[in-house]
Amino acid sequence: MRLEPIAAPTPARRLGLPALALAATVVLASGLSMLAGADPLATFGQILQGAAGSKFALLETLNRATPLIFTGLAVAVAFRAKLWNIGAEAQLYAGALVTVVIGTQTGLPGPLAIPAMALAAVVAGGLVLLGPVLLKVRLGVDEVVTTLLLNFIMALFISYLLEGPLKDPMGMGWPKSPALPRDARLPRIVEGLRLHWGFVLALICALGVWVMQTRTTLGYEIRATGLNPQAARFAGIPVGRVLVKTALISGGLAALAGFSEVAGLKGNLTADLSPGFGYTGIIVAMLALLHPLGVVVSALFVAGIFVGADSMSRAAEVPSYIADILLAAALLFMVLAILLTRVRVVRG
């Protein structure tokens, strides 16, 4: 068995294979829910019901999608430049951290505090990714390793802060930070509905990334660097500087997830602020084929599965872990589909 490259994949191949990947995911999940003793159709129905069946469910899905759009964009931007940023989780926490520090320590009034928190979060997230990228550009250190390990360093650092300097004195001993003052929180889009302006900010960011990638010289440079750094360098594109700019954007986007979760939803920082949004961002970006507008769609899809599976497991006897399996299977099938649009398998 060998792989033979396909020069020009047909549109049928490029669209059909990803569709096939989703179908395969559904088949696999059906099998699993049958194994758990449930009717697959009913299971899917309950997931759909739980994700979008009511106003409450829909808003919950949108809320859950918000941080995933940010981390998905962060990964999509970086992967375009073949900068393998596996550290969106650490950048998210960096953003959450400075958001809490500025929101609770500076005493800025709300209209100033919110933009200051967002801006500081972007800078902090960018800086967290800057280190690994400089190591990569200067010394050739593999950024997969450094960004991945930074996630654990950041997690431990946050734990330390929450047990020490940042611990809420009124927190009854719980490891959590003091809460942001009311006026330093992102307002709800519609009063009384649990959806905040972070979601709108995420949509604006997706649009902004799309415009950046398709209309600006930086976007052109990022794509050139990702596709062929040798040719990019020869043509005069400053590859190292492009990677640094990419890192600042990618880290900044991931950090906005932390900002939006703290300022829009939770109000304070805890060690379990993110149930792996940074890692799930990789799935979101891959399912979107790295397209920034596709990230919005795939983030909604992924969030819907999580939210729907939670509600489904309360109603049926199927464990909510099926959400993780669904997403893992979707990712693997999608990666295979992407590969098979570019190569075909031949025998001999």
């Binding site: 050139a224 062929n228 040798q230 040719a231 020869f234």
Partner: peptide, 17 residues
């Protein structure tokens, strides 16, 4: 490997410099 970027269009390759 050096003169062109294979997955760029002719237009994109034409303005590389």
């Amino acid at each position: 490997r050096t003169g062109t970027i294979a997955d760029f269009t002719l237009t994109e390759n034409a303005v590389l410099e």
